[in-house]
């Protein structure tokens, strides 16, 4: 076939939500995952870092930049976290949080109150070593990316073990430190097979369908993909983590487009700039896209504020928005799917 595949999907930048909040409060600090609830609230998991543990927690915002507070925080107690990796929300609005250090899944109710937690460290069935991605399958069961065991575990929402699939390796259906996971509306499961530089697709029951991607920085190639999202039409969005970009594919893996990000000032960021007149004045002559003498994507993004810097997670919002969360810039960019 030599017919050119029609590019059916593009991403158009529309907005930025975020602010660097090392001590908690309005904004995020090294966010690593987010989830959209059916009422439109957006929950952002800030992993923060050793020097600023107060920035650890789950923040609640919405598409219009309203701030609805935060909950959880650094610690080992009930409802606290150490190394949070992922969040997912079930059909009854309960929020599930994975913690790869404490090896547990914590559940919060729809009012953000702690409900319970479960999890056993290990490599046997019903055990995990480093839960990272979380998603619910078509039946409402919880899929846990058990990344250091290189497999996907399935549990009931109450933590009862059901089954698992995958093993360590690079063959079909095998994983190398997988990270993000999502379930498409057709029930298929997509996994960001992080260190194999590919996305794998499985049937609901864990049967391998296909894998796409190879190491590299060309179209359709990946460098440590961390997250994947699928819209209702089956288009696939991949956070190409170490290439500092998001790639879009159709359901047959035909390459659609790449976006690098073009963030502007969020209202929270604008408040900050307005409160600091010297920075406001200096920013008026600021060129966001300076001429660079580096080409490694990480270094380019470090020097270019609008670009994604460590795009860690992607999620759809409604039927025509894609949100891209950036760990190193404490924000998410909002794109219109066109």
């Amino acid at each position: 076939m030599t017919t050119e595949i029609r590019k059916q999907r593009q991403l158009k930048y529309i907005d930025t939500n975020g602010f660097g909040a090392a001590q908690g409060g309005r904004g995020y600090h090294f966010p690593v995952d987010f989830a959209v609830r059916k009422d439109g609230l957006i929950f952002v998991l800030s992993r923060s870092g050793q020097g600023s543990l107060a920035g650890t927690g789950i923040s609640v915002t919405d598409i219009d930049h309203n701030w609805h507070g935060e909950f959880s925080g650094y610690g080992t107690g009930d409802g606290e976290m150490q190394w949070g990796t992922a969040i997912a929300i079930d059909s009854s609005d309960r929020l599930f949080l994975a913690d790869e250090k404490m090896q547990r899944i914590t559940i919060f109710d729809s009012e953000n109150n702690y409900v319970s937690h479960w999890g056993t460290a290990g490599s046997g069935p019903n055990e995990f070593d480093g839960p990272s991605g979380l998603a619910f399958d078509a039946n409402g069961n919880l899929l846990v990316v058990d990344h250091k065991n290189h497999r996907i575990q399935r549990y009931t929402v109450d933590g009862e073990y059901i089954d698992s699939f995958g093993s360590e390796g690079s063959a079909k259906g095998q994983f190398n430190y997988p990270w993000g996971i999502t379930t498409a509306s057709d029930g298929r499961i997509y996994v960001a097979d992080w260190r194999n530089d590919r996305i794998q697709r499985f049937e609901e029951d864990g049967v391998f369908i296909d894998a796409h991607g190879e190491s590299g920085d060309g179209d359709g190639q990946f460098n440590r993909p961390s997250s994947v999202a699928v819209d209702d039409d089956g288009f696939i969005y991949v956070a190409d983590w170490q290439n500092q970009r998001v790639q879009v594919f159709d359901k047959d893996w035909n390459f659609q487009t790449i976006v690098l990000g073009e963030a502007g000032l969020s209202p929270w960021a604008a408040d900050y700039i307005n409160a600091n007149k010297d920075e406001k004045i200096a920013r008026e002559v600021f060129n966001p896209y300076p001429k660079l003498d580096v080409d490694e994507p990480y270094e380019v993004s470090a020097r270019t504020e609008p670009y994604f810097w460590v795009p860690v997670a992607v999620t759809t919002y409604g039927d025509d928005r894609l949100l891209v969360l950036e760990t190193a810039r404490h924000r998410f960019q909002i794109f219109e799917i066109v």
């Binding site: 602010f19 090392a22 001590q23 908690g24 409060g25």
Partner: peptide
């Protein structure tokens, strides 16, 4: 430590 209240100041 912890007095760097760029955000969340009232509570912190």
């Amino acid at each position: 430590g912890g007095w760097d209240t760029h955000t969340n100041e009232l509570s912190l």
